[in-house]
Design a protein around this nucleic acid. Sequence first.
DNA 1: AGGTCGACCTGGCAGC
DNA 2: TGCTGCCAGGTCGACC
Length: 272
Amino acid sequence: MPELPEVETIKRDLHEKICRDQFAFIKVFDSRVLANCTEKKLSKELAGEKIETVDRRGKAVIFRLSHQKFLVVHLKMTGQLIVGDGKEEKGKQTRIIFQLASGRNLFYNDQRLFGRLWVVKDLKEVNFLRAIGPEPLNGVVNPLWLTKQLKLRETPIKVLLLNQEFLAGIGNIYASEILFKAKINPKKRANRLRALEVESLYRSIVSVLKEAIDYRGTSMRNYRDSAGQKGRFIDRIRVYNREGEKCFICQTPITRIVQGARSTFFCRRCQK
DNA sequence: AGGTCGACCTGGCAGC
DNA sequence: TGCTGCCAGGTCGACC
């Protein structure tokens, strides 16, 4: 579910709300979400830990704690991190409740149980963080870097955008949206993009992700922010999940294809 | 090296 | 109403 803009929204809100608060008591309702520890170990490791910062890397939320320790949360498709004032009831999908010293609760909800949490001393202990590519919005990624990287890849550009070892944080919604904005056919091989297309792709990656952050993400189905609110970028979506509906530019019906077992949406006329 | 597919799960929705 | 099948924002590992 949550891609870079959704996770960034959650990260900013959590940093604002619970930074400097402290974990008090942790209750686990489904231990399948614990990637590298038991309920007992999680409670023991976190109890008394102060939250120094809340960060993001790709689609993961990273709580930096006192005593050189990190809580890493990957929300996968349906995970949510929601802050309550301490009076809210546990929901059907609540898998963990973190009670904070301030009396508030941090809920980890996850319908499909794909999400995972790690407690580590070193972020390199988390496999996907070791292999993850650069952040698209932090200045490392630029047209020159993109040009060099694309030259090395024969894979269809849509599939490459989903590869987290290439770039961190882009998922299925934004991959389609970025390529629509850049007017690039999702089936086009990465190394076949012309200089102008690479330039356009770079600008689209940055502008689509930034705009989606401004709108606090996209709520297709399950996504909610840390207050349980939906993201508003759904109103700015141009192609995702719009099969058969008219392209906003040329009125051609939007096409759905399958690439790497995932749906891709695009306009046959605008994206040559 | 790159691709494709199934597995991991629950639940919403369309169609019959 | 209720059943079946399909689909879902992510990733991993097996296999070709």
